[in-house]
């Protein structure tokens, strides 16, 4: 990704953040989200150019080569040269796309040198977070305000619920500027954990462990949802990550560690 393209993309990107009429994904706040966005825009622009060329030729032809305009049909119907050209050129374009795509993929799959590890477990229909080194453990489910509003015939105006369907009782707190390794599994069926602004998603599979890494560069609250059909309340088990500076994170850990310690005294 050269500097010029990054400059152009970041100048155009703000155009796409018109509140409810969101047409694009966010550039995100972590290296992996940024990389996914940049690749997405690159491929998108290439397909736009191809579309303009191909549809341009089509529309030209539709206008000029009409019987009603007096056009007489030509008789050519094959050309090996042309077939070779329009096989090779697309192939070359694809190779051009594959190189940055492969580099990005390798970067995303490298979970080494993480500072903290969090195990995320999907349940029907909530998440459990276990901070492995820091000994914090809790469930996180859809907040009551949303849960009441979403019932069929609730008569509650969902537009008045704060972060409707994207709020939880216990938020996942993570430190900023720290490489965090997320281990994913599930208790019952396949779920998937996704917070778009911080990274791409991965499946949470019962009996198996998956992993991804995040490094959140900006403090804030980031919201996501389960993204693998997991039963009736698949749409009602969101994820909320609160990213805070390291000191605040350490304080939060010590406040919440007590719960875990109580658990272990059996």
């Amino acid at each position: 990704m050269n500097r010029l393209s990054i400059l152009i993309i970041s100048m155009l990107a703000p155009l796409t953040t018109l509140a409810d009429w969101e047409v694009n994904m966010s550039r995100g706040v972590s290296p992996t989200a940024n990389a996914a966005y940049d690749l997405h825009m690159l491929i998108f622009y290439i397909t736009v150019v191809i579309g303009i060329v191909v549809f341009g030729v089509m529309f030209y032809s539709i206008y000029h080569h009409r019987k009603s305009k007096g056009a007489k049909p030509a008789s050519f119907h094959e050309s090996t040269t042309v077939e070779v050209i329009w096989t090779v050129i697309p192939f070359v374009i694809l190779v051009g796309m594959a190189i940055p795509a492969t580099k990005t993929l390798i970067m995303m799959e490298d979970t080494r040198n993480s500072e903290i590890t969090v195990k995320v477990t999907g349940y029907q229909w909530m998440w459990k977070y276990d901070y492995v080194e820091d000994d914090v453990s809790f469930f996180s489910k859809l907040a009551d305000s949303s849960n009441e509003a979403r019932q069929l015939g609730s008569k509650i105006d969902v537009n008045k619920v704060d972060n409707y369907l994207l709020n939880v009782d216990n938020e996942m707190v993570l430190p900023t500027n720290t490489k965090v390794r997320i281990l994913l599994t599930a208790s019952d069926v396949i779920h998937a954990w996704w917070v778009p602004e911080i990274t791409g998603k991965k499946d949470a599979i019962p009996g198996y462990i998956n992993e991804l890494w995040v490094d959140i560069k900006e403090p804030g609250v980031y919201r996501g949802q389960c993204t693998e059909l997991c039963g009736k309340d698949h749409g009602f088990m969101p994820i909320v990550v609160r990213a805070v500076p390291k000191q605040e994170y350490t304080k939060w850990v010590s406040l919440n560690q007590k719960n875990r310690v109580a658990d272990k005294s059996k």
Binding site: T117, K119, T121, Y123, D130, V132, E133, L183, T185, S187, D188, P206, G207, I209, K264, K266
Partner: peptide, 21 residues
């Protein structure tokens, strides 16, 4: 080496590693 544990389908079991790493 890190050790983690899971209990499937919310079974009534306590199951944890004796050391976590």
């Amino acid at each position: 080496v890190k050790f983690i544990s899971n209990v499937a389908n919310s079974a009534p079991l306590y199951f944890e590693p004796s050391v976590s790493e």
